[in-house]
Design a protein around this nucleic acid. Structure first.
Lengths: 190, 190
DNA sequence: TAGAAACATTGATCTGCATCAACAAATCAA
DNA sequence: TTGATTTGTTGATGCAGATCAATGTTTCTA
């Protein structure tokens, strides 16, 4: 059933009474995105937290010249939102799109935050989510700060080989902050 | 008194009974670092969370060639630790040093985490800290992903002018991930 | 299933910033 | 205070990776 993955995701991470789990699940609604559909409206804050049941989301920044720089992918069984905006309530600076047909569950931001005060296990769950997001963010910052393009690519191959298998070269290159041409040349040398 | 700043920092951010606040404060101990003293031991995990009473910490990554890349500064009235290691318990990848004589208060990691389960206000306080750290991290990632050196410098001048006033050019350049020469040339053009 | 559009590869050229070098200015240590 | 180290500035040169261009290949779509 549609909520099975989400329920398992939560109970794998935090001890929670079934009754409270049901309360949480009851706030999630389904949504299906088509390939390349963009989820956000520019100028508005992030109003929802998404859980990916099937498919894959891409979160990206916009450059002044209109170019997109990929910040993160969200594959199956991950939560995703424009977290800085979700936290601060300020307009989005990161946008989300589906790289293929994607089935989501989402919870409205207000419901999400209200549950934090009511269900301690949910506060703890969110804390773990934040910790995980922070660690990922920092690893990425570290990679850009200390490695050149070839080293970043090798690290990706080692840590997340499925990225390279599942995504187009163009997306992988964009994720590594290099041009598709540069990635193509890198691959031919390794 | 030594704990005044810390107590104010906490009560400014979260509602907490004085009794519980005292419990938290009782776990913090003072420590003074000399200029350029490094706080961490390579290969060990982060064992403490620090609060800066006076002075300034610099957190940096190490490159393979031994070069340092500054990740963050922690001025007065901020918490600081090698958070990825503090969270995961894995060995450090970010190191901390004092850029001038610095007065700290620190709480051991085990105490910190134990208090999360005992004092809900502390869990909430930590959640806010994580949210803040995440937002800062992401802004920095966004700056590197979407801006060139001159734009990053202008952004820093606009958002954190005290960085430029208080820190040496060398440190500012390192923070922006450019060479001191490049920063010097940038400044002469603006 | 054909034509169009997007993607991948390879070569040629360009450019932002690093690196190296030399010297002036500031800071430090005794 | 003085000599020594560190920092800041400016010029010359180098290079990783961007951009532009041409061609082949895959994938959408009607």
């Amino acid at each position: 059933m549609m909520y099975t993955q989400l329920a398992k995701y939560i109970t794998d991470r935090v001890a929670i009474a079934d009754e409270q789990l049901q309360v949480i699940l009851s706030h999630f609604k389904p949504l299906t995105l088509k390939k390349n559909e963009v989820i956000n409206i520019i100028g508005q804050p992030a109003r929802r937290m998404y859980f990916v049941n099937k498919g894959c989301l891409r979160v990206y920044f916009l450059k002044v010249d209109g170019g997109e720089v990929t910040r993160r992918f969200a594959f199956e069984n991950t939560f995703s939102t424009s977290l800085t905006s979700f936290i601060s309530g300020e307009p989005l600076t990161e946008f989300t799109t589906a790289i293929e047909t994607t089935e989501l569950l989402y919870i409205p931001r207000d419901d999400f935050y209200r549950l934090l005060d009511v269900i301690p296990a949910w506060e703890k769950f969110y804390r773990h989510y934040l910790e995980f997001a922070y660690v990922n963010n920092t690893k990425r910052l570290q990679s850009f700060a200390t490695q050149d393009a070839a080293e970043r690519y090798k690290l990706l191959l080692k840590e997340n080989p499925h990225y390279v298998l599942r995504l187009s070269n163009k997306l992988v290159a964009n994720y590594l902050h290099i041009s598709p041409e540069a990635l193509s040349r890198l691959k031919s040398k390794i």
